[in-house]
């Protein structure tokens, strides 16, 4: 299977505020987004002018949304997880899930589990159906090496659902055995974190995205390369890949053209290609040859892409970004 490196913009639905995350219901054209206005929206992208149905309930930015079975689960900076029915949006439950901002919410591939990560540096596993807390995964430091509160930005399941990876601001990555809750591996990818000890004395960056290869052997880690001026997201988009069982880095790529955070990573089904999306002032999509460690096609995304949703293929890629929701078409 060839890698779909032809990237084409189809359309953008402008939305007020900042659209921070997106999830797609199966292979349908129905998507759910989380926004800076504290709402979850349901949009039917099949329509010419999709109506955005708003679901209220959060009190701050909605930063994670996942679809699991019949439920949409959203999480936000208000520390809450909210379950709704995908059909009609009826509120199922609200859980005070974390002690600090929730940064990401993902569903396991079979839809049975929900994982949430937050700045309390804990990853929590939830029964997607009942909402019961199954397990707390603790393996990230509360503080950065420079004594500031750390942040746990991202998590991702392996395709078989056996493993879950989490990664934080200073670049610590943990792979968890989902069944036992034990750490299967842990390693560091510190190039994603920039600490300016002298000029400005604060930090920027962090690991923002993770993806297991379809065979589960490799783990891609996305973020931003070292930054000179930490006032700006002025570093090259950065992707690392690890043979995570050996904690060995198999490649590192600073994109030659695109700057900013890599907020999303997606492998093709055959594991040959790896899509990265993200941005700074503007945004980008770019493809990597996942085996050869080299950049393939790329495109300016016209907005800082905070999240993407796609199905098994890349014929329709939905992107959540600074000014709305965009539809992209990626073909070989």
């Amino acid at each position: 299977m060839a890698i779909p490196t032809n990237i084409k913009h189809v359309r953008t639905i402008n939305r007020p505020g900042i659209t921070l995350c997106i999830a797609r219901e199966g292979e349908s054209e129905r998507v759910f987004t989380g926004s800076s206005d504290a709402k979850v929206y349901a949009l039917d992208m099949a329509q010419e002018k999709p109506e955005a149905v708003a679901y209220e309930g959060h009190a701050s930015y909605v930063t994670g949304v996942a679809v699991a079975g019949k439920h949409i689960v959203s999480g936000g900076y208000d520390r809450k997880l909210i379950w709704r029915e995908t059909d009609g949006g009826k509120l199922v439950r609200t859980v005070d899930a974390h002690e600090k901002w929730i940064r990401a919410v993902v569903a396991s591939p079979d839809g049975s589990l929900i994982a949430s990560v937050a700045d309390d540096m804990v990853c929590k596993l939830w029964n997607a159906e009942s909402g019961d807390l199954i397990r707390e995964l603790r393996g990230h430091e509360q503080l950065t090496p420079h004594h500031f509160p750390s942040m746990l930005f991202t998590c991702a399941f392996s395709r078989d659902g056996k493993y879950l990876a989490t990664a934080d601001k200073p670049g610590h990555v943990v792979v968890w055995d989902v069944a036992s809750g034990e750490q299967a591996a842990a390693f560091d990818s510190p190039e994603h974190y920039t600490w300016d000890p002298r000029q400005r004395r604060h930090s920027i960056g962090g690991v923002r995205s993770l993806a297991f290869s379809p065979d589960g052997e490799r783990l891609a880690v996305g973020g931003i390369a070292k930054i000179g001026n930490v006032d700006h997201l002025d570093g090259k988009a950065l992707v690392h890949s690890f043979d995570w069982r050996k904690a060995e880095r198999t490649f590192a790529l600073e994109h030659p053209r695109h700057k900013g955070l890599v907020n999303e990573l997606r492998y093709t089904a055959d594991g040959e290609g790896l899509l990265a999306a993200g941005g700074s002032g503007g945004g980008f999509f770019f493809w990597l040859d996942a085996k050869e460690n080299k950049p393939l096609g790329d495109e300016d995304a016209k907005m800082h892409v905070h999240g993407v949703a796609c199905g098994e293929g890349f014929a329709k890629v939905y992107a959540a970004g600074h000014n709305g929701v965009a539809v992209w078409e990626m073909t070989a």
Binding site: P149, R201, H202, D231, H232, L233
Partner: peptide, 16 residues
């Protein structure tokens, strides 16, 4: 105490 000039990632800068 410098440097608060958070043109990028204002919230994370202020979290520190």
């Amino acid at each position: 105490r410098a440097w608060w000039d958070s043109h990028g990632q204002n919230f994370e800068t202020h979290q520190e």
